[in-house]
């Protein structure tokens, strides 16, 4: 996977402390990211919904404790709009339970404690951007699959052989073979390993 220049990567920073949000955004800009601070998740959601087709963010760095929408609820809503964005949480009230939830339930990439460890933040954002780019490309390649091909794809990447897939979907093994060939052709993957990589 080729690295995308950081300047092409959009990062949104959400924190209800204006100074901190701005500071983190400037820090990220210094490291070459196109970073933008937001005081409140609500306007970001609105903006985000508008720009998704054209200019989606690669990474969102968000505070956990905020006014109306907390960081976790915000992450849930963003995921619905854009499954290809990396989310990093930061908090001044770290707890073990939240740290686990942030990664397991809300798909966070990292959970940073304030005062922020700068190097760790930059590392996390860099990682998030490249994850997002990979994810988007994978999503793009599987977007053209038909509903049936999608079903076959989902079962194949779980490791089921053609026979089991045919059985599950009530198709003949021959039809499954055809769908499989179509999936490989559309996604450009060269075998099952490539398909599995796309599903991650």
């Amino acid at each position: 996977m080729t690295e995308v220049p950081a300047s092409l990567a959009t990062v949104y920073v959400v924190d209800d402390d204006h100074d901190l949000g701005a500071s983190v955004a400037r820090l990220l800009r210094r490291h070459g990211f196109a970073a933008e601070p937001f005081l409140d998740p609500a306007p970001l959601l609105a903006v985000y919904a508008d720009v998704v087709p054209t200019c989606p963010a690669h990474c969102i760095v968000t505070d956990v404790m905020m006014g109306d929408i907390d960081g976790f609820a915000f992450a849930d809503r963003v995921r619905v709009i854009d499954p290809g964005v990396a989310i990093i949480f930061m908090t001044a009230w770290p707890t073990t339970a939240n740290a686990v939830d942030s990664v397991r339930r809300y798909g966070g990439l990292d959970y940073l404690e304030k005062p922020i460890d700068e190097d760790r933040l930059v590392r996390a954002v860099t990682e998030g951007v490249s994850w997002s780019i990979r994810r988007r490309s994978a999503l793009g390649r599987t977007a053209r699959l038909t509903a049936r091909e999608r079903q076959v794809f989902d079962l194949l990447v779980e490791g089921h052989p053609n026979k089991v897939v045919a059985d599950r979907l009530g198709l003949s093994p021959k039809t499954v073979e055809d769908h499989r060939a179509a999936v490989l052709a559309k996604t450009g993957a060269n075998g099952l390993a490539g398909l599995i990589a796309l599903s991650r």
């Binding site: 100074d19 005062p115 922020i116």
Partner: peptide, 17 residues
Amino acid sequence: IHEISQPLSTLAIEARH
């Protein structure tokens, strides 16, 4: 500690810069 950590975050980032 919480109240301090918020402004301190900003301060530390800016100080390093």
